[in-house]
Design a protein around this nucleic acid. Sequence first.
DNA 1: GTTTTAAAACGAAAACTTTAGTTTATATTT
DNA 2: AAATATAAACTAAAGTTTTCGTTTTAAAAC
Lengths: 127, 127
Amino acid sequence: MKKMKELTRAESEIMQILWRKGKAFVQDIIDEMPKPKPAYNTVSTFVRILEQKGVVGHEAFGRSHRYFPLVEKEKYTRGFMQNVMGSYFENSLPKMVSFFAKHEDLSVSELEEIKKLVEMELKGKKK
Amino acid sequence: MKKMKELTRAESEIMQILWRKGKAFVQDIIDEMPKPKPAYNTVSTFVRILEQKGVVGHEAFGRSHRYFPLVEKEKYTRGFMQNVMGSYFENSLPKMVSFFAKHEDLSVSELEEIKKLVEMELKGKKK
DNA sequence: GTTTTAAAACGAAAACTTTAGTTTATATTT
DNA sequence: AAATATAAACTAAAGTTTTCGTTTTAAAAC
């Protein structure tokens, strides 16, 4: 398994859009970007970089390319979150949950959802 | 409240060490760094950059400086995780927990810890 | 009090990221 | 088929981050 190269901020922003949309032409990507929209060529360059990195592919439609992710968001998220967990939460999910319980204002329904989820998981685990 | 500037990767690596150790001379930081250790000056430059950004301070000992974080890890983590949550988990903690349940192998004791924690939180919430 | 030495400060080169203008190729229109 | 238009590819400049060699400094050793 090849080690996934870390994405830069701009690259990641474009990947987020591709992950969300599944497939997109350069213009579609630009449409999804906020306020100070970059030039067409800027985005075009980035998809090409991402393609070179092996995380994006394309299919030709006439002389246009429609781009799509080659790496699943889940997969990338996994590697990425591994770092975050290690650096910020001592590799402990309870520590992370506790952090959010302390700092963010969790709703009752969110908490109940987590509880249910964890119980489910426990059921599967214990015997 | 001033908006905390995002840290670069190298800066963040040094902050992690300062957060862990509390106080450290440049050499102490280098000692904590992995394999291809950077030159003394490299690290020295970074602590100075961090100082300029207002996230690190120092006290003088003779002609040495002992550096320490001015921004709590918790505080920085908060802003940082807000992004992560938004980009990767649609701002939903249950989604994040679910992600880990699916991908990482959580131990029974971790799950129980989370369950307890969530129940505690619920108790506090529901009237 | 002069020399040595070790750390901080400075400065600038190297590497990487971001941004877009220019060029090229090829469909589409005339 | 020539002109036009459009999208990708190329190129390069601007900006940022990372890396250290060099210089300055001030304390310590002589």
